[in-house]
């Protein structure tokens, strides 16, 4: 996996919770069906606009809430990385384990307007607003956790090591 991802940004506020990503009625659905309902309560129609290669930006406490696998949903929608002021610990785990690069970066919402293009070195923490030239520096996740992301997530690790049956 490349240490940099580049894409058009979507901006979300503080305290974006898991139930907004995967609503109650979608909890038991397959991942493919869950994708259709992401943010249906707070931003109806977003899943029709988001494109593979886009980047998610959010405020403080991103991913607060349940164990619902938000990383898998964003990954499934083609989001290439998430940059947020701060992450809920479980939300962070679910991004890492889904192989979706997360970058904690206080102040991220101040340097982007929605639709700008971000270039994010999630390994070093350097964020560039390609549209305006503005920069901001995040606090990258530790190397040991970057390795899980780079391996493609935790299931890929297990499958490679023979703990899971071949697909």
């Amino acid at each position: 996996m490349a240490r940099t991802f580049t894409g058009k940004v979507w901006k979300f506020d503080h305290d974006i919770n898991t139930d907004l990503v995967i609503p109650n009625f979608a909890v038991l659905m397959t991942l493919e069906d869950q994708l259709k309902h992401c943010f249906s309560a707070n931003r109806p129609g977003w899943v029709d606009e988001v494109q593979p290669g886009d980047v998610l930006l959010a405020g403080r406490n991103f991913g607060v809430g349940s164990a619902r696998n938000i990383g898998a949903v964003f990954h499934g929608l083609g989001i290439v990385g998430v940059v947020a002021d701060s992450f809920n610990g479980l939300g962070l785990r679910n991004c890492i384990n889904a192989g979706l690069p997360p970058l904690p970066c206080p102040g991220i919402l101040d340097v982007f307007d929605e639709g700008d293009t971000a270039e994010v070195d999630w390994v070093a923490g350097a964020v560039l607003n390609v549209t305006t030239g503005a920069t901001v520096t995040g606090a990258p996740i530790p190397k040991a956790l970057q390795d899980i992301v780079e391996a493609g997530g935790v299931e890929a690790v297990l499958r490679n090591e023979g703990y899971l049956a071949a697909r």
């Binding site: 164990a67 696998n69 479980l90 679910n94 935790v154 299931e155 690790v157």
Partner: peptide, 8 residues
């Protein structure tokens, strides 16, 4: 821990 981590 989330579902994937539990598998690990």
């Amino acid at each position: 821990m989330g579902p994937s981590e539990m598998l690990y």
